[in-house]
Simulated assay, not measured.
Amino acid sequence: MKHLIMGVPKNENFPVFEVGVAMPTNKLAALMNWQDESDWIFDYQLDAEQISAIEEVEKYELPKELDLFLTYRSSSK
């Protein structure tokens, strides 16, 4: 299982940015307030607090000019 952050320009539908998230899924679950494993497979628009927490753990800065989404990609891809 792999989570990614995708960045989409405002008022558009297609991502122009993608980066992997190495944070363990259990830490992501706490950050995202997921209740069970089925919550992990959906796409979520990230808020400023979630973005800051991910940047701190991942040690990278995410683009501010894009809408950022956390998404899931199965490990078979």
Rank of each mutant, 00 (worst) to 15 (best):
F69V: 03
K27T: 06
A53D: 05
F42M: 09
P15C: 05
Y44L: 06
T71C: 09
V19H: 01
A53P: 07
E65L: 05
N33A: 14
N13F: 12
A53R: 12
E37S: 11
F69H: 13
V57P: 02
E61F: 02
D39W: 13
V57N: 13
D36P: 09
L66I: 06
S76L: 12
E12D: 11
N13W: 10
Y44R: 00
T25E: 01
P24H: 11
A30N: 09
E37L: 14
E55F: 01
L70D: 01
I41V: 15
I54W: 04
I41D: 04
N33I: 04
I51E: 00
H3Y: 04
P63V: 12
I54T: 09
V8T: 07
N13Y: 01
T71Q: 02
P63H: 03
I41L: 06
L68K: 06
F69Y: 15
K59N: 15
F17N: 00
S38T: 15
V19W: 03
M32L: 07
S74D: 11
D39V: 05
F17E: 03
L68T: 09
K77F: 15
L31W: 02
N33H: 13
N11W: 12
F69C: 10
E58K: 05
N26Y: 15
E37F: 13
Q50S: 05
E18Y: 04
E55Q: 10
T25F: 12
E18R: 00
A29N: 05
E37I: 12
L70F: 04
V19D: 00
V19F: 00
G7S: 06
I41P: 01
S76D: 08
D36W: 06
Q50R: 08
E56G: 08
L68Q: 04
D67N: 15
L66R: 02
N11E: 07
W34N: 04
K27R: 09
R73G: 07
D39M: 08
P15W: 00
S52N: 02
W40V: 07
Y72E: 08
L46H: 04
H3G: 01
P15G: 04
G20V: 08
P15T: 02
L70G: 09
K2P: 01
M6P: 00
K64I: 09
S74W: 15
L28V: 05
F17M: 01
G20Q: 14
L62K: 06
E65F: 09
W40L: 03
A29Q: 10
Y44S: 03
Y60S: 09
N13C: 10
I5A: 01
K10W: 01
L4T: 10
E49P: 00
E37A: 15
I41W: 06
Y72H: 13
Q45D: 05
N26G: 02
P15Q: 05
Y60G: 10
E65S: 12
E56T: 12
E49K: 13
V21L: 02
E61Y: 06
M1Y: 02
S74V: 06
L28M: 07
P15Y: 12
I41F: 11
T25S: 14
E65C: 13
D36K: 15
Q35M: 11
L4D: 02
Q35V: 08
K10T: 10
I5R: 03
W34K: 04
L62A: 11
N26D: 10
A30L: 10
F14C: 02
M1P: 07
V16L: 04
P9K: 01
L70M: 06
A30C: 03
V21I: 15
T71V: 10
V57S: 13
K2E: 10
H3R: 07
A30G: 04
K64E: 13
K59G: 11
